[in-house]
Design a binder for these strands. Sequence first.
DNA 1: TTATGTGCAAATCATTTGCAAGATC
DNA 2: GATCTTGCAAATGATTTGCACATAA
Lengths: 129, 129
Amino acid sequence: MNYSRQREEVLSQLQMHHDHPTADVIFAELRERNPNISLATVYRNLRLLSEQGTIQKIGFVSGADHFDPNALPHYHFVCDHCGRVIDVPMEVAEHLNEQAQRYISGKVMSHELVFHGLCEECSGEYDSI
Amino acid sequence: MNYSRQREEVLSQLQMHHDHPTADVIFAELRERNPNISLATVYRNLRLLSEQGTIQKIGFVSGADHFDPNALPHYHFVCDHCGRVIDVPMEVAEHLNEQAQRYISGKVMSHELVFHGLCEECSGEYDSI
DNA sequence: TTATGTGCAAATCATTTGCAAGATC
DNA sequence: GATCTTGCAAATGATTTGCACATAA
């Protein structure tokens, strides 16, 4: 893989996020500085970077894929009201794989754990309902 | 919600599956018996049935949504080779929500646990590689 | 100077929607 | 007969792809 300025910009823009943005969010942000960058390039590079294992593609939220600059295994929380995806820094429970393995005739290799609920801002809104 | 023959067919076709098919699989199967049913009707009814809580929409697999005739909370296994989605009948670990709650300032209400690996057929294929 | 990456537009895939005609209550 | 549902085709949203031009090694 050759160097490209656009790929570097996509990666560093993603790394600035504490939340986990979608491709079009990254695109809109990059476009402010570089009005020539194309959405296809953003998609291409997010894909390359996640295939390469530098970042992580989050496909479990409905709608567009989100991207996480942290590729190490960890859990997530999704706000069911605003769609925001944030990290849950609790310990990864490896033993769950062995538990599941008892029920599966194939080979269980990993798991994904996603919590759902309302984020701080959105649960505030709901208090008044 | 009024009765409709198409909705009943969609539901009973889904209930025949032990795996968790996508809308186009249900559509193709129904079309063999009823060449007039339309894909939009299948999508509409799968949506209605899942909003109503009769079935469950599975959105965490990349690509098209899958549907599960069992709407009760339970875990799933996804084969990373063929994309098949099957049930994991292990006990639901409610305590995970409380663990995650310690790290989240909003309100954790539920979780989704998805195991990944290779199903029996696909791990067989890989033995010979 | 050859392989790789980009920008644009068109293509693709999954899903939804507008609307006229058909089914249900 | 008023309302809900269908079938079809067109619209939408997310993502990918073909291709001529630009850039990196």
